[in-house]
């Protein structure tokens, strides 16, 4: 059974159909990408998965359970975490506090239960530090998140999403604004996240990165799925080339 299943998912905003009858299925343990020109509906598709929007039509199933009607924070608890296209860190707070916020769903002890709350807090900080080490930001744990360089802020956002212990990680243009060196490290990191057993779905414009790490690619254009398959299949598909470069002139 697939981890994520979208059936005939449509989202309309007034007269505009941002996502139109998209069927998509994602197996656990892979890295998959959604690509497409600007305005193709990629971020809307992500927002549908994350519960920011509800589909106008169609169904979404995650880990055997329907996502329809769930609110964002409930979806996070089911194991679906995300990052944002424009970094949305809690700027003035320290990096480790950002991660602890990402772990909010593991705090079950009421804040009045001193002993239980303290034990949870201690375990959470330990786990947060481990996650920071995993993404290579141990040094920055106690710095204000908005004081870090841009590339590191991206990593903090990924670490914050990882801290919630997701089954599926949605990355919205993680390489945007990164230099080639940082992109290379990011590619490596996404591979290591997959090796931890976390399925990764990303929106990305950096085609090199997409081709290098994805097992599965879906191409959206004007809200429609125009192609799907392995990176090789998709890159040879005339419809994809047309969407990106325009139809060949006669």
């Amino acid at each position: 059974m697939s981890l994520l299943e979208a059936r005939q998912v449509t989202r309309r905003f007034g007269g505009l159909t941002a996502v139109s009858s998209v069927d998509f299925s994602l197996e656990a343990g892979v890295v998959a990408s959604v690509i497409g020109p600007n305005g193709a509906g990629k971020t809307t598709f992500f927002n549908l998965l994350a519960g920011v929007y509800q589909p106008s039509e169609g169904t979404l199933t995650f880990d055997g359970q329907p996502l329809t009607g769930l609110m964002t924070h409930q979806i996070v608890r089911r194991g679906l975490a995300r990052t944002f296209q424009n970094i949305r860190l809690f700027g003035p707070m320290s990096v480790i506090e950002n991660l602890l916020i990402g772990m909010h769903n593991r705090f079950k002890g009421n804040w009045l239960h001193f002993a239980q709350a303290r034990a949870e807090e201690k375990a959470a900080r330990q786990k947060a530090l481990e996650t920071l080490e995993f993404v290579g930001l141990s040094e920055d744990a106690h710095k204000a998140a908005n004081s870090l360089p841009y590339g590191h802020q991206r990593l903090v956002e990924i670490a914050r999403a990882l801290a919630s212990d997701p089954k599926l990680l949605l990355l919205d243009e993680p390489a945007a604004g990164m230099n080639p060196n940082e992109t290379q490290e990011l590619t490596h990191l996404i591979g290591r996240i997959r090796d931890r057993g976390i399925t990764v779905l990303l929106i990305e414009h950096d085609i090199k990165l997409v081709m290098e790490i994805s097992q599965q690619v879906m191409v959206l254009d004007h809200g429609h799925k125009i192609s799907e398959g392995t990176p090789e299949q998709v890159s040879r598909d005339p419809k994809v080339i047309e969407a990106y470069l325009g139809a060949p002139e006669e």
């Binding site: 994350a50 609110m71 964002t72 996070v76 700027g91 909010h104 705090f107 804040w111 709350a117």
Partner: peptide
């Protein structure tokens, strides 16, 4: 003081800074 240093206080700060991101972290607004 207790609220400030609890997970509730942290959730409140997160909502204050960015409610959308707080929700995406699993916090019920």
């Amino acid at each position: 003081y207790r609220v400030r240093h609890s997970s509730l206080g942290r959730a409140l700060r997160a909502i204050r800074e960015d409610a959308v991101a707080a929700e995406a972290c699993g916090i019920s607004l």
